[in-house]
Computed example of a mutant assay.
Amino acid sequence: MELIFSGPVIEWRGPSPYYFVPVPDEESADIREVAAMVTYGWGVIPVEARIGEVVFRTSLFPKDSGYLLPLKASVRKQSGLAAGDDVTVRMTVALHEQPPRQAPQS
């Protein structure tokens, strides 16, 4: 599943400051439809994202009814991003094929 969206860079001012791009409602709804097939626990969703020329792998964090795309320091520095900047994100959520179920043996 490929998604393209724009949004502001926000700063999470917790004990460890971090930066995110909120995934808009429509795209978050699309992700929720496949979340059970792609999450590896705690509701996080592995993705590959691209901002400008910078491509990176990370995992979306669930927040309220949406998701946050984390931006590592290396991604922000390469892209020249700061809190409040608007960015366009191209993001791929890898849909994994479910293994075929085997019939119970008697």
Results as ranks from 00 to 15, higher is better:
M1T: 13
E2Q: 14
I4H: 11
S6K: 10
G7E: 00
G7T: 02
G7W: 00
G7P: 05
P8Y: 11
I10W: 09
I10Y: 05
R13S: 12
R13D: 12
R13T: 13
R13C: 00
G14Q: 07
G14E: 08
P17R: 12
P17F: 09
Y18Q: 11
Y18M: 07
Y19N: 12
F20A: 07
V21A: 00
V21D: 05
P22W: 08
D25W: 14
E26L: 14
E27Q: 15
S28G: 14
S28K: 09
A29Y: 15
D30S: 15
D30C: 15
I31K: 03
I31F: 04
R32M: 11
R32C: 07
R32Y: 11
R32E: 13
V34Y: 01
A35I: 14
A36V: 08
A36S: 07
A36W: 01
A36I: 08
V38Y: 02
T39Q: 08
T39C: 00
Y40G: 14
G41P: 04
G41W: 06
W42L: 12
W42T: 08
G43I: 02
V44W: 09
V44F: 03
V44L: 06
I45A: 03
P46N: 05
V47I: 01
V47D: 08
E48S: 06
E48G: 08
A49Y: 03
A49K: 01
R50N: 12
I51W: 04
I51M: 09
G52E: 12
E53M: 04
E53R: 11
V55G: 08
V55E: 12
F56C: 03
F56K: 10
R57G: 11
T58G: 06
T58C: 01
L60W: 06
F61K: 06
P62G: 01
P62I: 01
K63R: 15
Y67W: 00
L68W: 10
L68K: 01
L68R: 01
L69M: 01
L69F: 00
L71W: 09
L71I: 09
L71F: 05
L71Y: 04
L71G: 03
K72F: 00
R76H: 09
R76S: 05
K77T: 15
Q78L: 06
Q78P: 01
G80T: 02
L81Y: 07
L81P: 07
A82H: 13
A83Q: 15
A83Y: 11
D86W: 02
D86V: 11
D86K: 06
V87Q: 07
V87P: 10
T88H: 08
V89T: 04
V89F: 02
M91Y: 02
M91H: 10
M91R: 10
T92L: 12
T92M: 12
A94I: 13
A94L: 14
A94R: 13
L95G: 04
E97H: 09
Q98L: 15
Q98P: 10
P99G: 07
P99T: 08
P100H: 14
R101I: 15
Q105F: 05
S106V: 03
